[in-house]
């Protein structure tokens, strides 16, 4: 299992475990875990409604590609820790990471 943590709006750390080899991105996992994210564009890095802050483990994730970086540049409130969860593939790199859903 891949284990990572989602920090809720009130600061609680909620562990999530996902089986290895699952072909999902983080946005899909968060939605399936009933987190309140819109993800209106469905995962094309176009709406930024699935933005997260990577509080821990950002450097172990695969780097963002141009389209994601462009969208993050466009957001009024994003910083070095911001990522679009739809562009983060769920795999072993997520082990131990801490994410916070933006907004």
């Amino acid at each position: 299992m891949i284990n990572f943590i989602v920090e809720s709006h009130d600061g609680q750390h909620i562990p999530i475990s996902v089986p290895e080899g699952i072909s999902l991105n983080l946005m899909e996992v968060l939605k399936a875990s009933d987190y309140d994210i819109l993800a209106t564009c469905g995962g094309m890095a176009l709406c930024a409604t699935c933005m997260v802050q990577v509080l821990k483990g950002g450097q172990q994730l695969a780097s963002a590609l141009d389209q994601e970086l462009d969208m993050l540049d466009r957001m009024p409130a994003s910083d070095d820790k911001s990522r679009l969860s739809c562009q983060i593939a769920v795999n072993e790199q997520l082990e131990g990471c801490v994410f916070k859903i933006a907004g």
Partner: peptide, 10 residues
């Protein structure tokens, strides 16, 4: 005014 120091998209 830009919050970053690079413009990565264009």
């Amino acid at each position: 005014v830009h919050r970053g120091d690079t413009f990565r998209g264009s």
